[in-house]
């Protein structure tokens, strides 16, 4: 088998009048956690279903380890996936759910007990899955994804329904999977969930990847870094900085917010023009800012602004 990667090229899919995927292309590499983020309806779940061969695309290819998913023998040994944790038969026990999955791949029952222990579900494994909490179902789903010890793991919204302890556990768990050299793709519609977990980000909107970069590169590249400046010579400072191409807004009697220029450049400019100032504080852009800026045009279901509502 070639490198354990997911390679998506130009995926296009239409459901009736909606274009769900519109040229989705990116690669998920081994050894890193790739965050897959975008607003609801942007095409995250559809992409994952296409990767797993559940939905057929109109155009493009989705390869896992160099092959289409539907050509894999014992696919759970290549890709482990969690799509919908609630997709269980309510009266089958968690262990038995894993058991039939294991048998479908020719795996032994021993492996089932290993993954149950790995996700910390031992005490509940012999209870009916219908009685599980959402968090327990997520753990069961992750156990199912790990059954075949796959080099590629793909999880759709794994943080949903998890308590804070569970979220911390999940983050460490995902990082450890990547550290073992696996390719890990984790989708979320909440930026804060992947901020501390992902090394690489794919941001999607309207059915295509609108950003595909390392987390740090993305933050650095954003234009929304702002600098707060405290000065008694407000008008003079604004003129100097505006001349240098920055966007300047007076936010108080002696405070100004500058955007479009990095902090060190602002200090140099002010010193050269002899403008007095008492404080310069750079406000580092968060992933949230990056995300909002990137997806601003891509949000399909944007809430109406209050003015629009009253009109």
């Amino acid at each position: 088998m070639s490198a354990p990667e997911i390679v998506l090229t130009g995926l296009r899919k239409r459901y009736g009048a909606t274009l769900a995927l519109d040229g989705m292309s990116f690669t998920v590499r081994p050894g890193v956690v790739t965050g897959f983020v975008g607003p609801n309806g942007a095409g995250k779940s559809t992409t994952m279903r296409v990767v797993l061969g559940l939905d057929a695309v109109d155009e493009g290819t989705a390869l896992v380890g160099g092959k289409p998913y539907r050509s894999l023998r014992c696919p759970l040994n290549h890709v482990g996936a969690l799509l919908d944790a609630a997709a269980l038969h309510p009266s089958r026990t968690g262990r038995n759910h894993l058991l039939w999955l294991a048998y479908s791949q020719g795996l032994a029952a021993r492996r089932v007990d290993q993954v149950i222990e790995q996700v910390g579900l031992t005490s509940a494994a012999r209870r009916k899955a219908g009685g599980y909490s959402l968090g327990m179902r997520q753990r069961l789903g992750i156990a199912a994804a790990l059954l075949g010890d796959p080099p590629i793991v793909m999880l759709d919204e794994p943080f949903n329904g998890m308590d804070p302890d569970g979220i911390i556990w999940m983050r460490g768990f995902l990082r450890s999977l990547a550290a073992q050299g696996r390719a890990v793709l984790v989708s979320s519609h909440l930026m804060s969930e992947v901020q501390d977990t992902a090394d690489h980000l794919v941001v999607v909107g309207r059915g295509k990847a609108i950003a595909d970069a390392g987390v740090n590169d993305l933050i650095a590249a954003t234009s929304s870094g702002r600098v707060a400046l405290r000065t008694t010579a407000g008008p003079h400072a604004m003129a100097v900085l505006a001349h240098a191409g920055a966007t300047v807004v007076a936010t108080g009697s002696d405070t100004i917010t500058v955007s479009g220029l990095p902090a060190d450049r602002i200090v140099t400019l002010l010193n050269r023009s002899v403008v007095p100032f008492s404080e310069v504080s750079a406000h580092r852009a968060t992933l949230e800012d990056v995300y909002l800026e990137l997806t601003r045009d891509a949000v399909e279901f944007r809430a109406a602004t209050p003015t629009e509502v009253t009109r």
């Binding site: 797993l52 061969g53 539907r70 050509s71 038969h89």
Partner: peptide, 19 residues
């Protein structure tokens, strides 16, 4: 149809992609 109702058909077809 029980599997279509619960969504488990996705798990089944992920495990055995040759439909």
């Amino acid at each position: 149809s029980g599997e279509y109702g619960s969504g488990m058909i996705h798990t089944t077809l992920t495990a055995v992609p040759h439909r």
